[in-house]
Nucleic acid binder design. Structure first.
Length: 357
DNA sequence: AAAGCGGGGTA
DNA sequence: TACCCAGCTTT
C-alpha cells in the first residue's frame, strides 16, 4: 500500500471522530510533556483528571521543579508507576538547570530527559514542535501488526523494528502530529484490542489480518508474566490520636510513598510472637503488654508482576520505643491526608474514615 | 534480553 | 482469570 493510500484511509476515518483531549488546547512542550508522562501505560480516561490537577497546581516547568517530591507523589497518588512522578520531577530540574526553564525543542534534548523514552520523545516533538517522528505505542503496534500482518512478537526488538520501519515510511511529513494523533485514535477507538470495528473499517480491503481472519491473533506477544504472592502485615500502632508511619525505601514497590510499620513474611497470618519480635528489634526492653485488638484483612491487591495479600493489625499503647533511631514517626490521624499512600492503604484509610475522600 | 514497576477496565 | 493501556529504567 502506498503512503498516500494509507494516509487517505486514515484521515478519512479520523476526520469523522471527535475526541476531547485537554492538552491539545494549547499544545506547548510543557503541556504535552505532562500529559504524555501521565498517559504512559495509562488510559486517557484514567489520566485526564490527574493532568488537569497537575496543570492547575504547577502551570510551568519552574513551578514543578520547585515543588517537593512529597507534594508531587501526593498529586500522583493512586495513578501507579510512581517512578514516572519522581523522574518528571528530576526532568523539571534538568530543564531549569540546562535549558533555562524552557522546555527543549530538539528531539535529542527531549530524549535525554529523565523518564522520556522513544515514544514520549516522538510524541512531544511531533505534537508540540512539528518534529517528524512517528510514535510507536501499544495502539500503533496493534494497527500496523494487523494491517501488514506482522507476526513477529511486538515485545521483542525484531518486532518493534518491523513496526518502526512501516511507520517511518508512512508518516505524514507535512503534518506528523496529525498522523500520530490519528494513528493512536484509530487504535484506541476502531482497531481496538478486543472487538475491533472491522466491518466498517476503511482498511478492511487491504488489512492482511482481516482478510486472513487473524485479527484476534495479532499482534503477537512473546512475554509472559508470572505473578508471585507477597504477604504484608501492617501494624496500626496507635498512641493516643497518633499512628506510626514510615516512608518506603528505594529498591522495592511504591518507592517514596508512605505506609504503616510493615512485617512481611511467607504466611497469610501473623503470630503474636512475630509482633513481639518486631518490637524487640526496636527496643529490647519492650514487654508483652501490647496485644492485637483487631485485625482487618484487605482484598487481594494486584500489581503487574505480583499479588499482594495484606492485613492490618490494630495495636494500641504508649509506643515511645519508636521515637528514637527508627524509620518510624508518629503523626496525628487527622493529618494522614498530607501523605501519599499506595492505593491498597488509601482504600483502607478511606473506608475507615481516617481520610475524608 | 529480561525483569521490575500500579492501577483500572474489559471480556 | 488474563490481557491491555499514549513505556521507561535498571540489571
Amino acid at each position: 500500500m502506498k503512503e498516500s493510500e494509507f494516509l487517505g484511509k486514515l484521515y478519512s476515518w479520523h476526520d469523522g471522530i471527535e475526541r476531547y483531549l485537554p492538552w491539545k488546547e494549547n499544545a506547548d512542550g510543557y503541556n504535552v510533556w505532562v500529559s504524555e508522562i501521565i498517559l504512559q501505560q495509562t488510559r486517557v480516561e484514567q489520566g485526564t483528571p490527574y493532568y488537569l490537577r497537575f496543570m492547575q497546581k504547577w502551570p510551568t516547568v519552574s513551578a514543578l521543579a520547585a515543588a517537593s517530591e512529597d507534594e508531587i507523589l501526593k498529586m500522583w497518588e493512586g495513578l501507579g508507576y510512581y517512578s514516572r512522578a519522581r523522574n518528571m520531577h528530576a526532568a523539571a530540574k534538568q530543564i531549569v538547570a540546562i535549558h533555562n526553564g524552557q522546555f527543549p525543542k530538539n528531539y535529542e534534548d527531549i530524549l535525554a530527559l529523565k523518564g522520556i523514552g522513544p515514544y514520549t520523545a516522538a510524541a512531544i516533538s511531533s505534537f508540540a514542535f512539528q518534529g517528524k517522528y512517528a510514535v510507536m505505542d501499544g495502539n500503533v503496534m496493534r494497527v500496523i501488526a494487523r494491517i501488514y500482518g506482522i507476526d513477529s512478537p511486538i515485545d521483542k526488538p525484531a518486532g518493534r523494528k518491523a513496526i518502526q520501519n512501516e511507520i517511518d515510511r508512512l508518516i505524514d511529513e507535512k503534518n506528523p502530529g496529525r498522523f500520530n494523533q490519528a494513528m493512536m485514535d484509530f487504535g484506541a477507538l476502531a482497531c481496538k484490542s478486543a472487538n475491533p470495528l472491522c466491518q466498517n473499517c476503511n482498511f478492511n480491503e487491504v488489512c492482511i489480518a482481516f482478510k486472513a481472519n487473524l485479527v484476534d491473533q495479532l499482534p503477537v506477544k512473546a512475554g509472559k508474566i508470572t505473578k508471585k504472592t507477597r504477604y504484608f502485615h501492617y501494624l496500626w500502632l496507635q498512641r493516643g490520636d497518633e499512628i506510626a508511619l514510615k516512608r518506603r525505601e528505594k529498591g522495592d514497590i511504591w518507592e517514596g510513598l508512605y505506609e504503616l510499620p510493615l512485617i512481611e513474611n511467607q504466611n497469610s497470618f501473623l503470630q503474636i510472637a512475630e509482633v513481639i519480635q518486631f518490637f524487640k528489634t526496636m527496643d529490647s526492653s519492650i514487654n508483652e503488654q501490647y496485644v492485637i485488638s483487631d485485625t482487618n484483612k484487605l482484598d487481594r491487591h494486584v500489581l503487574t508482576h505480583l499479588y499482594l495479600e495484606a492485613t492490618i493489625y490494630k495495636i494500641e499503647g504508649n509506643f515511645e520505643l519508636f521515637t528514637n533511631n527508627t524509620p518510624y514517626f508518629f503523626v496525628p490521624i487527622e493529618n494522614l491526608d498530607n501523605f501519599a499512600f499506595p492505593k491498597l492503604l488509601l482504600r483502607f484509610l478511606t473506608a475507615n474514615g481516617h481520610i475524608n475522600r
